[in-house]
Amino acid sequence: MNNVIVHNAVRFVALLILQLFFMDQINFLGYINPMVYIFFVLLFPLENNRWGFLLLAFLLGIIMDTFQDTGGAHAVATVTLAFMRPLLLKLVYGQGYLTKNLKIIQSPLDRFLLLLLLAIVVHHVLLFALVIFNTSQILYILKLTLSIGIASYIMITILFLLFSKRKEQ
């Protein structure tokens, strides 16, 4: 149990540092900075209590907001992603994912890529809608979602491949 807490605490801090110190400095084409911190929300243990999960997701988002001066956009997007995670898992891994003792980090690559795609769509659309906060700029919101979403997708996939402990087949 303690091991799980330490694991997640380290992941929380490490992903934040990676996000703030490296990812936010990339500025590819002037504005494309991948959002890797949502990897934490995807990897959080499945069976743990959801109250703590939601609160942690909110905290993670608020920390991102203080660094980017985006008010509460990251917090809302991240907490929404955390809240919707069971639904996404059900879609990707089937109804009985809880009984199968599933570990996201050990799951097959194709399943994870599907989960990641859904998660990034939910998170980025909401995030950039709140960051831009203007209905006349929907095209710009979609442009940000698409371009930064692709960057996030690539980065998180690389992280997944680096850290996944899939059994050798």
Binding site: L55, D65, G72, A75, V76
Partner: peptide, 9 residues
């Protein structure tokens, strides 16, 4: 939580 975040936004 979402409401709090929206107020901040």
């Amino acid at each position: 939580l979402a409401f709090i975040g929206l107020i901040f936004t």
